[in-house]
Design a protein around this nucleic acid. Structure first.
Length: 697
DNA sequence: GTCACTGGATAC
DNA sequence: TGTATCCAG
């Protein structure tokens, strides 16, 4: 459901850039003879010639439409060239298009905040660049205006006179225009430049809309295609929306739009104007109601998010009709294919973007043929993601089996072999989400995740390297006597240590209530799950089945005995004068984060204080807590992933601060100064930035 | 029940 | 937080 968001500023400059029949262009670049030809890209499907997923503009002239079948397209346009989507592992493989999309994004992101909205679309916030241009080099002062700019469409202008080009040129160079219009004009200049750069560097054409918000920019980008751009001045908005069919508006193409038509008799966006906000809220709820009310007026405050990379990766396939899967064995086979693709993409993401995914989810569509009237949805299931293709396969299958049991209402029944009780799977997909960047300077961690599994033994990773690769600036380095494991914390909130068969987890009691609800966990291995290992060190991540005392994701580093002497050296270096800091960070972070975890939605910051935090600490510094069996200097833990933690600033020990690196000291001091006013609001300490996963780029 | 596949967003 | 649902192209 859309959410209401009032416009914060009415003079933003937002662009939506949309690649023209992108998949076709990608294929045409690969095969130049296709240029200018009626062409369509079909998804592998022997049935009726495959489904069209992109159609060139030449083919559109013949009436070829997306979601026609290949055979149908041939009838309408016999000379059409049908290009197949690459197939890998028995399914469509969109990687070439994804990569081509990345090429484009890397160009479009040069001039302002860039949000990759899909494989072939981006939003740009060009406000700052446009303001700069207006200040330094306004269009009215330009001697020449590029052809691409003059070819722009300016809504509300074209029908005014006979010479459209001249009108546009005049609109761009008017000195008496409003500031808003001038900013839009600058935005259009910038977008024209960007589009030309895209063409030069990638051979792809694109279309764009330039407006004051995302909604209007998106609307405009589709109005003049291909290879053109459209500007939406303020003055044109009401007229534009008055006659716009309601279904054309983004988010209203589906059920909500249908409901507006049927239930309220609303056929154009303008028709919405007759309803009060309250009335719309009555029908559709507070959020959607307000969103509709604003939408009718061209108001949309949605921000352009800085995002060049996807938030998740998925791999899926449908098995329509007779191809539905009816045995666990066949499901497993396809699941394996999907997992292989997913794993490959996760590895690429790790190598190229240094990001790690944390959650694996399985979705399936199913129906029951015999006992079939009880329509039940196949439940999605997820679990922590373990890197490595075979681990992903294993976990995906477990998730499927858990889902299937639930779907069939057969709890605690093992589903084995080839039996089938009438169920059929018509769709399967696996996806990886909660992807976070790991900080720079963690090459060793990269190595760990990369090529683990079978090939891992070849990747020699002495833990000495692990230590050396620790980020130098991080103050948290000092809090770990054993040095470099620190890099791991940005990946996982939890570090524990293990030696021989002894494992010490510095875990917190969490008192989770709804453990038993989580069926998925029961499926997982007893304890931790290894994500990688090497001759010298092992890293684990996972959770524990036994929740009596602790729970949650944690990461374990084990360094083998052969490194004992190395560690000794390090230890003595680190120990000089660092104990206070160690204790400080440990207690601070683990304590406050524990609370944060407990009370993710409740107001943690108001109540927490350093002493309160400390009272909840695990006593890892006292020998009382079974520490004897473990080399304490090898082990340490800090929860760092969650950036928000807080403390009472009056209780911060100055001595502790003094031990920090200069740069961080200064930052904290500055923050403290800003907080020392009456009515202190406790909130994030500035230094958390150093702990958080690198925001990247 | 058949548009395939992928991904974002929201709500509970 | 995990899961369901909707939406877009």
């Amino acid at each position: 459901m859309p959410v209401a968001r009032p416009e914060l500023s009415d003079s933003r400059v937002i662009a939506h850039v949309d690649m023209d029949c992108f998949y076709v262009q990608v294929e045409q670049r690969k095969q130049q003879s296709l240029r200018g030809q009626p062409t369509a890209v079909v998804q592998y499907n022997s049935w009726q010639g495959g489904g069209l997923i992109a159609v060139s503009y030449e083919a559109r002239k013949f009436g070829v439409k997306r979601s026609m079948r290949g055979d149908e397209a041939k009838q309408v346009c016999p000379e059409i060239h049908l290009v197949q989507v690459p197939v890998a592992r028995g399914k469509a493989d969109l990687n070439t298009y994804r990569n081509a999309g990345s090429e484009v994004v890397s160009i479009l992101s040069r001039r302002g905040r860039c949000e990759r909205a899909s494989i072939d679309e981006v939003y740009l916030d060009l406000t700052i660049a446009a303001e700069a241009m207006l200040a330094d080099n306004p269009p009215e002062c330009l001697e020449t205006i590029s052809e691409e700019v003059v070819k722009s469409h300016v809504l509300g202008l074209e029908e005014v006179g006979s010479d459209a080009r001249e009108n546009v040129r005049h609109w761009f160079t008017r000195s008496d225009a409003s500031r808003c219009d001038k900013l839009l004009a600058c935005g259009a200049f910038i977008v024209a430049e960007l589009r030309l750069q895209v063409l030069e560097e990638t051979e792809f054409t694109c279309s764009a809309g330039i407006a004051h918000n995302k909604m209007l920019a998106k609307l405009a980008s589709g109005m003049n295609k291909p290879a053109q751009q459209t500007v939406v001045p303020f003055s044109s908005i009401s007229k534009l929306l008055r006659t716009l069919p309601i279904k054309k508006m983004k988010q209203l193409g589906g059920k909500l739009g249908t409901s507006l038509q049927i239930d309220l008799g609303v056929n154009t966006v303008g028709d919405l104007l007759q309803f009060s906000e309250e009335k719309l809220q009555e029908y559709y709820g507070v959020n959607t109601g307000s969103w509709l009310w604003n939408t009718a007026r061209g108001i949309n405050g949605e921000e352009v998010k800085e995002r060049l990379l996807p938030n998740s990766h998925g791999s899926g396939k449908t098995f329509p009709g007779p191809r539905a899967l009816k045995t666990v064995a066949s499901v497993e086979k396809w699941l394996n294919e999907l997992c292989e693709e997913l794993s490959e993409r996760l590895q690429s993401d790790l190598e190229q973007n240094k990001r790690i995914a944390h959650t694996l989810t399985l979705h399936a569509h199913a129906y029951k043929s015999n006992d079939g009237d009880s329509f039940r949805k196949f439940p999605s299931k997820s679990c922590p993601l373990r890197y490595g293709t075979s681990k992903i396969k294993e976990d995906a299958l477990s998730l499927f089996q858990a889902g299937l049991r639930e779907y069939l209402g057969l709890f605690n029944v093992k589903i084995s072999g080839n039996q089938n009780n009438g169920w059929s799977i018509t769709g399967l997909s696996v996806s990886a989400s909660k992807i976070v960047a790991i900080p720079s300077g963690t090459r060793s961690i990269m190595n760990y995740f990369h090529n683990q599994e079978e090939s891992f033994p070849q990747v020699k990773l002495p833990s000495e390297q692990l230590i050396q690769d620790a980020p130098l600036l991080s103050p948290s380095e000092d809090s770990l006597e054993s040095g470099g494991h620190l890099t791991l914390q940005s990946i996982e909130p939890w570090i524990a240590c293990r030696e021989g068969n002894e494992e010490t987890k510095y875990s917190m009691p969490l008192d989770r209530q709804e453990e038993d609800k989580d069926m998925c966990k029961e499926k997982l291995p007893e304890k931790v799950t290894s994500i990688c290992s090497s001759p010298d060190a092992e890293v684990y991540r996972g959770w524990e089945k036994d929740q009596t005392e602790s729970s949650g994701d944690y990461l374990t580093v084990k360094i083998r005995d052969s490194l004992e002497s190395e560690r000794g050296k390090r230890k003595s270096n680190k120990e000089k004068g660092m104990s206070t800091i160690s204790r400080y960070f440990r207690s601070q972070l683990s304590g406050s984060l524990l609370k944060a975890e407990h009370a993710s939605t409740s107001k943690l910051s108001e109540s927490s204080s350093l002493s309160a935090c400390q009272s909840e600490l695990p006593q890892e510094n006292s020998p009382a807590r079974g520490e004897s069996s473990v080399d304490a200097n090898l082990c340490s833990q800090i929860k760092l992933k969650r950036p928000a933690w807080s403390c009472d600033i009056d209780e911060i020990d100055q001595d502790v601060l003094n031990e920090l690196p200069k740069q961080i000291q200064e930052e904290i001091q500055a923050w403290l100064r800003s907080q020392k006013r009456p009515n202190t609001v406790k909130r994030d300490l500035g230094i958390t930035r150093y702990f958080s996963p690198a925001k990247d780029k």
